[in-house]
């Protein structure tokens, strides 16, 4: 370090020497710092633009879903696949695709989209959501055992009401009415107002006696 007892001239000389010795390093450091800063800003705005574009594409996919417009929907999803895999919109686009396919009865296509989301979505909640929906599609295509296996594969408890309903459907499909009733009853505890669920439970008979009945 600089010696503090020296005169001003000596200090200047010392500074000059220090600059000669470290100048290049300091200069490189400053330039590097500026580069990192500029790069970071660029990266941020690039990411924002990407996300906004992805949102826009998903917005169009949602609209196509409302209009049952398969062509627009498919081109939207493949665009998400190509360019927006890092945004949440690819998984959402696939979920939209699965809805369109499942509601028109194309279960294999719906299964494919949902399987992808259930193992590739960026976060656990979306993966669990896709699993629950996949179980419904399995049930619709008669793969009851697969539905039960999937529903037992560690989905968050938060989804239990819907999962229990699908489990009831699966047991019903397998003819195991006792288990089906139990699963529906459990689902009804968490979602007492769900009409379809209640009807399915009622049609299995042997109801739990409520206040009205005696």
């Amino acid at each position: 370090m600089i010696d503090h007892n020296s005169t001003d001239d000596e200090q200047i000389a010392a500074l000059k020497a220090a600059w000669r010795e470290h100048g290049r390093a300091i200069f490189t450091g400053v330039v590097l710092g500026v580069c990192v800063l500029v790069g970071w800003n660029y990266w941020q705005s690039y990411k924002l633009a990407r996300a906004q574009e992805g949102a826009e594409v998903f917005n169009q996919v949602e609209r196509a879903l409302e209009l049952n417009d398969t062509a627009t929907m498919e081109s939207g999803v493949s665009m998400l696949e190509e360019k927006y895999g890092s945004t949440p919109y690819l998984a959402l686009g696939k979920l939209a695709e699965a809805k369109l396919k499942a509601e028109t009865g194309d279960y294999p296509a719906a299964q494919k989209a949902l399987s992808w989301v259930s193992s590739n979505a960026n976060d656990a909640e979306t993966r669990d959501l896709a699993k629950v929906r996949l179980a419904a599609v399995y049930n619709a295509s008669g793969n009851y055992q697969e539905a039960l296996n999937l529903l037992a594969s560690g989905i968050s408890d938060a989804f239990s009401s819907i999962a229990d309903e699908h489990r009831g459907d699966a047991y019903g499909g397998l003819g195991q009415l006792e288990e089906a009733r139990a699963a529906y009853d459990q689902a009804l505890e968490a979602s007492p107002g769900a009409e379809f669920l209640q009807w399915k439970r009622d049609s299995l008979g042997d109801a739990i006696v409520t206040g009205d009945a005696s």
């Binding site: 949102a55 998903f58 949602e62 879903l65 959402l92 979920l95 939209a96 699965a98 809805k99 499942a102 509601e103 028109t104 009865g105 279960y107 719906a110 959501l129 929906r133 419904a136 599609v137 049930n139 619709a140 295509s141 459907d169 379809f196 009807w199 399915k200 049609s203």
Partner: peptide, 25 residues
């Protein structure tokens, strides 16, 4: 809003389930 609305808008019901609902209804 998008976090919830994107889930609601993609909620699916297989064709078979819709038919069985209509039947029960």
């Amino acid at each position: 809003d998008q976090v919830g609305s994107s889930i609601a808008s993609t909620a699916l019901v297989p064709a078979a389930a819709i038919k069985s609902y209509s039947g029960l209804e």
